[in-house]
Nucleic acid binder design. Structure first.
Lengths: 340, 340
DNA sequence: TTGAAAGCGATACCAC
DNA sequence: GTGGTATCGCTTTCAA
């Protein structure tokens, strides 16, 4: 593979000049520029990224850490990130934390060792990392910018983009209450900030609508499909049986619906189901799943935007914090046919 | 970020020695090894990939090109690839060709400019690239190994892993014929090798079962969901109306099922539907979709395995060609309740 | 068993 | 405008 030296030789100039035309920096006469350009074409020359990285200490790599690759939420979000970054020449390095705090630290270290230019960390709960700042600090110190999806206290000026989980859960719960349900089971996720927030919405909707809260209706899952299935099994045992279920995310809601199907319980007639995230599966499953719409793609884009603006120094002020709003997509899983 | 020099200095040895302990190559006394190791730990040192790449001319990057990121088939396949490669320190660079031949060439070039160590190219039809060898050659010449998912003639010794599309389509068609359908519409994909093969299976099943083939029953789609929807609309207009539909992939089959739902045509009672690929959506949708099972994850793994064995020279013989076999997953979309 | 030094391919400062 | 050259962080002979 040809190097800058061969281009220089062929064009009869120095490597410095070739470098200038490649990077469109500094003065180069039109005539030499053409000569160099031609040599580049003939040799099919493309700069060696590794060599460039070494001198510029920029790799054009972005680390992206997500909790669960199998959850379509993160896929969608990644698309937003990737679409924004790829034209700018950045490439993504994917990693999965599996919601495990040790794994998270490992991956961040690995990003650092790969000398990523920046990283985007997504977590359902940053507080679990005890001292998140300790993880972030080495990155920031080495001029590796970090943006977070989710919330965490930090002494650093760090950008975050989040989603109004409280409001989202509120909307879903309120909707169920308005549909006449007064006993709404909750399939919760793992202990985490996100679960707390979604629980708060569930709780506040009850309070505002003067419906008493029953702790016995809360069943814990782990945000994955199977746990939704299991949780629903427990809910079916309850006496009296709830007439509605709100799951803290869609994949659990779908697991729950499968359990209902297996037990021949009709949705929404016997039990109404609502989820959270509005993943593509909501429209695939029958009945279609009512869900809180999270603008995943836009969140991804915003994360990328924040990061890029930090990396190219077009912004260097205090930590920004963007919260995307919620909306509920009402579908068949919560609306009885006679109510439609 | 600390460099090898700082480690060397701290440990009181030369950089060469540090390099030896990092790479576990050459002789190092246990005593010095320990000293160096300690310095590494204290400094949280990790080798700079870019610098390593520059000397070793290996980037630990693998280029992966897929036709359509939105199709779960490729997601699943990528997982197989990634799982196999990540422990070995390789990272994937994803690119999407959108089934566009120009884009494909671009991406391959970009891989080259990023000096990937190897690349995995997936396409539904390599023949469209006119001279595929012209694309592969620069890669191979620069010691960048290439493996293909799919078939193409090549003068190079190149590894490929494929799937028995003819057999798969045969199984699905045969199943529909056996279920008593004699008029089976076909939703085809874009003109491509894969479409041809799947058509051949459809055709052969008809011949072997002495059912005449009707070209009017073939409607062309583009492998994407919407085209399946549109195709089904056309099929519904046919007179007489077919009693079964075989779509060349699942996302089109699902699009077709949505059209049927919108027009209140019951599946499988009025029209039976079968797809191809066995993506996760098949079990989500109701009725569950009968589909040809393609071992996507295993195919991905095999691709990675082939590539790795070439890269580390553990294999350098003639081009290998592995074809995975088919099996049909029969589900509700093709079996009437009274037949179950 | 260890160290000195050349070289990988680019960038950027300093002369001219 | 253009060229010479130190430098980035590492690997790898070659000597010692």
């Amino acid at each position: 593979m040809s190097s800058i030296y061969q281009v220089a030789e062929m064009a009869g100039v120095s490597v410095a000049t070739v470098s200038r035309v490649i990077n469109e920096r500094g003065y180069v006469s039109e005539k030499t520029r053409l000569k160099v350009q031609e040599a580049i074409n003939i040799l099919h020359y493309t700069p060696n990224q590794a060599a460039q990285s070494l001198t510029t200490s920029s790799t054009k790599l972005i680390g992206l850490l997500v909790p669960d690759i199998n959850n379509p939420v993160f896929l969608e979000q990644s698309k937003g990130i990737n679409d924004y970054l790829k034209d700018k020449g950045y490439i993504l390095m994917y990693a999965e934390s599996g919601e495990d705090d040790e794994e998270m630290s490992n991956m961040v270290r690995r990003f650092l060792s790969n000398r990523v230019d920046g990283m985007i960390l997504c977590s359902r709960d940053f507080t679990q990392f005890g001292d998140m700042d300790a993880i972030i600090e080495p990155a920031l110190k080495n001029n590796v910018h970090v943006v977070l999806n989710g919330y965490v206290d930090s002494k650093f000026e760090i950008d975050r983009v989040g989603f109004d989980n409280v409001r989202g859960a509120y909307l879903a719960t309120e909707h169920l209450l308005k549909m006449g349900h007064s006993s709404i089971a909750l399939i919760a996720g793992t202990d985490s900030t996100i679960s707390e927030e979604r629980y708060r919405g569930y709780r506040e909707a009850h309070i505002d609508n003067h419906v008493s809260l029953n702790p016995a209706l809360v069943v814990k899952g782990d945000f994955r499909q199977h746990s939704g299935y299991e949780a629903m099994l427990k809910i079916l045992q309850m006496n009296p049986r709830p007439t509605a279920v709100f799951a803290m995310n869609d994949v659990m809601a779908i697991g729950a619906m499968m359990a209902l199907e297996d037990h021949k319980v009709s949705v929404p007639d016997e039990i109404a189901v609502a989820g959270f995230d509005d993943i593509i599966w909501c429209s695939l499953i029958r009945p279609r799943l009512t869900s809180v719409v999270q603008p995943k793609y836009e969140i991804g884009k915003k994360l990328a935007e924040f990061l890029l603006s930090r990396m190219n120094d077009s912004y260097s002020g205090p930590g920004r914090h963007e919260i995307f709003g919620s909306r509920l997509a009402v579908r068949q899983s919560t609306v009885k046919s006679e109510q439609q």
